[in-house]
Each structure stands twice: as structure tokens, then as C-alpha cells.
Simulated scan of single mutants.
Amino acid sequence: MATALEAAAGVMRGDSRAAVSSFARCWGAQQSVALDVIVTPDSSVVIHPETVVTRALRLIDSVNTSTNCLHTTVGFGILVHKLTKLTGTVPAHIASTTAERCSAFSYRSGVIGLLLRTNELDAAIAYHRELEYSALLQRNEIWSLGTFGGDIPQTPQLILSGKPRLTRTAANVIADVTDLNDAYLYYLVTTAVPVLLSYDPTFGAAKDKLAQAISERMENGITNRNARKASATLISSLR
């Protein structure tokens, strides 16, 4: 929470370097929750969270992403993700059409924020198509999920050294299968899980748990027909 407050303070001062540096230290499940508590209107610990969001929107264009350094990549990506999740709009200049690490990470960050905010299946479909033809986006997907879960160390240039078992990452994905909306579920079963399986075929020794979680989600009801069909397809492949 202290680091999340430092990030908010950097935003309020208009200090992009300090803000991004603090955001970069908020990569992980618990840290993400702390950031949400800072800026989410219904649960914020600050008096005027909307002011933090407004200042952050102004700040985003002043971040120097050309350095492509690791802290900037992660910090800027988190900023993009949180703003997209809050506003439902990805910053206009965020795109995947580049070979740079920072752009790939921020592009994915915006997509995930959009899925969580809007539940738009088209956004998940478009991201899946982009990833199919981009080795960088595929590597970024593994790196993002694996580092967020703490199974893969944060390394420069999205380097994937070795092939550790993705135990904590698998647990995070299984929890998301249960809890998050249909568009995000579609993203998981069509994009995230297949890419993670290409890296760790055992899925953190949790393939059976994943299949069970998807089955239970289907039993509880999946409104979107495409998400239901894709979920059934993945279950068949897992078994």
C-alpha cells in the first residue's frame, strides 16, 4: 500500500519518472489490489480518487518510453492497464505494431484493462489474432503472466530463461476462470492458457484442476456462446 501511495503521489506531482518507478514495483497480485484501492471510487483510501485518475491521464503522454528499460516497460504498462480498466478506453497511441518490448507490454496491458472493464469479446478476439502472428506478443504473454505470478524472474528484453513450472501462475489463472467475466474467460481459454502450455506443458501440474474449474464455470453458466464453445474445446484438449 505504501508503494501504491508513492505512485499516486508521483502522479499528483506530475513527476512521471517517480510515478513510473513506483508503479513498476506494483507488479503482482497483492500489489495490483493495493493500486485498485487507491484509485477505485467505491473503495478508495484517498478523498478524491478521480483527481488522481485525471492527473494520470495527463501524465501518460509525458512518460519517456523510448528508453525501453525494464522499469519503464512495467511501470508504464501498469499505468496504461489501470487507466483503461477505469475509463474503458485504451490511450490512443498504444498499439502492438512495433517490435519494441515496451509497446508489446503496454498493448497487452491495455487489452486486459479493456476486457475487465467492458466485457467486449471482440477485443479478446482481436488480441488473439495479433498474438498468433507475433512471436514478441507470444513471449510477452508468457513473461507477463509468469512474472505477475512470481514463477518467472523479471528480466530485460522479456527473456525467458529456463522453463520453470508455472505453479503460481496456474493458480492465478484458475482463480480468474472462476471469477472474471466472459470476455476475459475467452481470452484465457483461447490465448493465455495455450501459450502457457507451450512453455510449461504440465501447466504447473494443474491441468486437471484447470479443466475442473472450466467445467464448473460452464455449469454455473457462461452467457456468451463463443466463450462457452471455446471453453468446451479447451477442456477436450486438456483431457
Rank of each mutant, 00 (worst) to 15 (best):
A2D: 11
A7H: 05
A8E: 07
R13D: 15
G14N: 10
A18D: 14
V20H: 02
S21L: 11
S21T: 13
F23T: 05
R25D: 07
R25S: 07
C26H: 03
C26E: 10
W27K: 08
W27T: 05
A29M: 10
Q30M: 10
Q30N: 09
Q31T: 11
S32R: 13
V33K: 13
L35V: 13
V39K: 08
S44I: 08
I47K: 14
H48K: 12
E50M: 09
T51Q: 12
V52L: 11
L57C: 11
R58I: 02
I60Y: 07
S62E: 12
V63G: 02
N64H: 10
T72S: 04
T73Q: 14
V74M: 00
G75C: 01
G77V: 00
G77W: 00
I78V: 05
T84C: 01
T84E: 01
K85C: 02
L86H: 06
A92W: 03
H93S: 08
I94Q: 06
E100K: 12
C102N: 14
S103P: 00
S103F: 08
S103K: 11
S106N: 13
R108K: 15
G110Y: 01
L116A: 10
R117G: 02
A124L: 01
A124Y: 01
H128M: 10
L131E: 14
E132Q: 15
E132I: 12
Y133N: 13
S134D: 08
S134P: 09
L136P: 01
L137G: 08
E141H: 07
W143F: 15
S144K: 11
S144R: 14
L145G: 04
G146D: 06
T147N: 05
F148E: 08
G150F: 02
D151R: 10
Q154S: 07
T155A: 14
P156R: 12
L158F: 13
I159Q: 13
S161R: 15
S161N: 14
G162L: 05
K163S: 12
P164D: 03
L166I: 06
T167A: 05
N172F: 10
V177S: 05
T178N: 09
T178G: 03
L180R: 13
L180I: 04
A183V: 01
A183D: 01
L185N: 03
Y186I: 00
L188A: 04
T190H: 07
P194E: 08
V195P: 00
Y199E: 00
D200F: 09
F203T: 09
F203M: 13
A206R: 15
K209N: 15
A211F: 08
Q212P: 00
A213G: 05
S215M: 09
E216C: 10
R217S: 03
M218H: 12
M218P: 06
G221R: 11
I222V: 15
N224M: 07
N224H: 14
R225L: 15
R225M: 14
N226W: 04
K229M: 14
A230N: 07
S231E: 06
A232F: 09
A232I: 14
L234N: 08
I235W: 06
S236V: 12
